[in-house]
Design a protein around this nucleic acid. Sequence first.
DNA 1: AGGAGTTTGTGAACGGGAGAACAAAACGAG
DNA 2: CTCGTTTTGTTCTCCCGTTCACAAACTCCT
Lengths: 224, 224
Amino acid sequence: MKEHTVTARSNDSARDIPEATVARLPVYLRALVALAEQQISTCSSEELAAAAGVNSAKLRKDLSYLGSYGTRGVGYDVDYLRYQIAREIGVTQDWPVVIVGIGNLGHALANFSGFRSRGFRVVGLLDADPDMKDQTVAGLQVRPFDDLPEIATENGVAIGVIAVPAVAAQDVADALVAAGITSILNFAPTVLSVPERVDVRKVDLSIELQILAYHEQRKAVQTL
Amino acid sequence: MKEHTVTARSNDSARDIPEATVARLPVYLRALVALAEQQISTCSSEELAAAAGVNSAKLRKDLSYLGSYGTRGVGYDVDYLRYQIAREIGVTQDWPVVIVGIGNLGHALANFSGFRSRGFRVVGLLDADPDMKDQTVAGLQVRPFDDLPEIATENGVAIGVIAVPAVAAQDVADALVAAGITSILNFAPTVLSVPERVDVRKVDLSIELQILAYHEQRKAVQTL
DNA sequence: AGGAGTTTGTGAACGGGAGAACAAAACGAG
DNA sequence: CTCGTTTTGTTCTCCCGTTCACAAACTCCT
Ligand SMILES: NC(=O)c1ccc[n+]([C@@H]2O[C@H](COP(=O)([O-])OP(=O)(O)OC[C@H]3O[C@@H](n4cnc5c(N)ncnc54)[C@H](O)[C@@H]3O)[C@@H](O)[C@H]2O)c1
Ligand SMILES: NC(=O)c1ccc[n+]([C@@H]2O[C@H](COP(=O)([O-])OP(=O)(O)OC[C@H]3O[C@@H](n4cnc5c(N)ncnc54)[C@H](O)[C@@H]3O)[C@@H](O)[C@H]2O)c1
């Protein structure tokens, strides 16, 4: 295989990748990791698309936003493409993360191994409940919520996870923002209001289930 | 206020609501429940949109797919609209749900109160690990995975939640489909392959974090 | 009853993403 | 070196979703 040449786009860091593409890059990355584990060193857009569960034309278009990392007539080098996507997403180094609210969900998240293996490192577990103090979860001591600013600045934390009850979520978000955090993953079923510069993504179990219920209901109606 | 008249659309159950709208209806529903709890009986599209974190024009267009449930010059009746959305989504009665994989995450899900209050009822907790049998989680006994067909048919279960490790997810999905389940919520980081008629939605923590990381990285680059 | 003020429902313009289709590029065989 | 085969990168078209903007509908006040 020919030496990979760095094409024009790869140094130009200001180009913007469509949001829909950004959301799929992690899926491609995961599929590439799986292929690498199977000792597969090259793959076509067709194969990778199948592994990622998308259309191959869409995959190629998505990858073309990053640059020209394939070889016509051959396909993509698994390791090389994997590195390029990881670099583009920004997970070549680990991001420090804090989790707030170590209840049912917070426990599960703290124990989640996928964090570590996918570019993230949990550096703080915080809870307002004084009884939680001194408890150790997943090898990390639970700290009082007031320690947030200290932990955040010490570790240069940019990403925070909210796993507290809905009523407390906005307060926690405000505190996270005050502590300099600029990206929030919110598990509480609330609309958070944050400054413009802060990104919020939500994961909402009830919403997902209700969407399924809607389609389920339609199926039922249609088969009558 | 004038009596609500049932408009042309409300009986026509075959019209299709855009997917993007379906995904927002649960958000509106939640906002309406919150308003009702504050004893607010009427609200404008502007107010409801603010509570739901969307543009008011978008809200109105979304609601217009359900029918004409507002009153010009006045706004929407909170209870009435709430019922109409719940009916449209299909959460006026509870949907039975099974959870497969009672590990870290499965425990948290089983204990999640939001299930019950939002139109869903957990009727089965399943795990392949024999040591889990006889354990009671959230007032429900954990059953062996082989009991799935029995539990599913007994309760008329249509929705299943997968919370097992990625390697087992496809097998579990196959079993769920074989047991007659037609909607799956998948927490495992895998692309599931299922028959056409089965709906799958995925919740993927790592992907969400990686999307945040991408934007975080861009912020860092831009402020250099 | 009529006019002023308010708010919904929707037509129309616009922007972004999905997918088909193909030209350009690489490779191997002869 | 040339031709045929393979597969990428990209163009073009279509569709879905967002947003604007406004007429229609309703309330309230005089
Ligand atoms: N359990 C689930 O499977 C699940 C699923 C989806 C969403 N959620 C949502 O995630 C959130 C947490 O759920 P849970 O089941 O873990 O609840 P939980 O009650 O078990 O845990 C909440 C934790 O947050 C802590 N807390 C409360 N207020 C706080 C504050 N101001 N600052 C810091 N910590 C605070 C509490 O001490 C507690 O430990 C809820 O909003 C819930 O709706 C949970
Ligand atoms: N823990 C989290 O916060 C978290 C977050 C996001 C995603 N996930 C994903 O959710 C899944 C579960 O995570 P976890 O932390 O709860 O893992 P876990 O290992 O704690 O639990 C998995 C459970 O599934 C059971 N199981 C395994 N194979 C099975 C099978 N074939 N049939 C039935 N049950 C089976 C195991 O006995 C175990 O109890 C994983 O795919 C993980 O990647 C977890």
